[in-house]
Design a protein around this nucleic acid. Sequence first.
DNA 1: GGCTGAAAGTTAGCCCCCTAACGATATTTG
DNA 2: CAAATATCGTTAGGGGGCTAACTTTCAGCC
Lengths: 194, 194
Amino acid sequence: MPFLLLKDLPRYECLLEAANDFPELDPSAAEAYLHLLHTGDEVFGVSDRSLAGHNISHGRFGVLMLLWRGVQPRAAKLLGADACTPGPRTPAELADACKVTRATMTGLIDTLERDGYVKREPDPVDRRMMSVLLTPKGVEFLTEFLPGHFKVISALMSPLSEAERKTLVHLLGKIQQQASRLHPKHEAVPAATV
Amino acid sequence: MPFLLLKDLPRYECLLEAANDFPELDPSAAEAYLHLLHTGDEVFGVSDRSLAGHNISHGRFGVLMLLWRGVQPRAAKLLGADACTPGPRTPAELADACKVTRATMTGLIDTLERDGYVKREPDPVDRRMMSVLLTPKGVEFLTEFLPGHFKVISALMSPLSEAERKTLVHLLGKIQQQASRLHPKHEAVPAATV
DNA sequence: GGCTGAAAGTTAGCCCCCTAACGATATTTG
DNA sequence: CAAATATCGTTAGGGGGCTAACTTTCAGCC
């Protein structure tokens, strides 16, 4: 919930006027950009508060959700994954799935383990690796927390009709695609090796 | 850019299927929610990288923008403010405008001052207060950075038509309103004092 | 069989965010 | 006027991100 910009967003007319002084400024683009970040922040905040009551952060929540597949195969569906393929186990896999560095994942697992939600176990065959497992307390948290969380999400989106939700997802998809085009993760390997 | 959830979003069909196991889950709401956070994160990341090249974070950027009004009244328009009213000056005002705590603002000003973008001056009349001022280096950063930043924003939103941008802002507005309804900042004072 | 290199996880150090508690100063009030 | 209260900015300590460097272990190649 802490991430950004200003409390009060400029109105479109202000941006329009400002564009006189800043030729590179596209008022409607800036308006959409600011609203996207602002609303995202607000929604993130609501969801965060819902988690914070249980002393869980979004990062920790992601880890627990991913690990849940190990004990509840039906959870795989929630994550958009094939129920047959095994879920992530090692810190490296978890870091990848959560889009965090391995160093950050070490920290997350540290506190989750300290708080009893998770347990580390050494891999019997490759001694470099660890397996991370959900404890009963971790499972209990998820089963108690998720229904309420789903209700919060449902409430958040309740002002939008089904059609509006589809439209929103569609528009966000376009932006998302453009955003990932603007920062190629692997810098577009030239593919000219032979 | 670091804030959330999973790398791969579940597809709608998966959520639909998952709703069989979780009666509280509203698939279209969850889909919209996940896309909103994911896209917001992605867009935030692009913008963040654009700032990071200058060793500036979003928090620091917000402070610089707010202080800019002190030297460039035309900047007020960008912030949606009346050009006549003076901009924020003290750490407390800046913290309020940036939606961060005063403690956080102390930290931001500390590093901005250390890097030479900003200067603290004691208030001559109220000795509890400080005034924060932009240095020439701070002004230089903004004038050099903003045009490129505007271009990035423009590029991000380029896949959307004017009509689509309006629609997006409208839909986000509904969600934003609902979100602030779900976490009343001041817990809805009953207003029954007399 | 013994180097070399890659991979897993961790550590150390920094940034930005938070809450809580604090000294210093103003203001209100008895 | 003096005491209580409020406000300003800061400090202390913690969480969760990051990068860079390190240790341990495995795999490949003379």
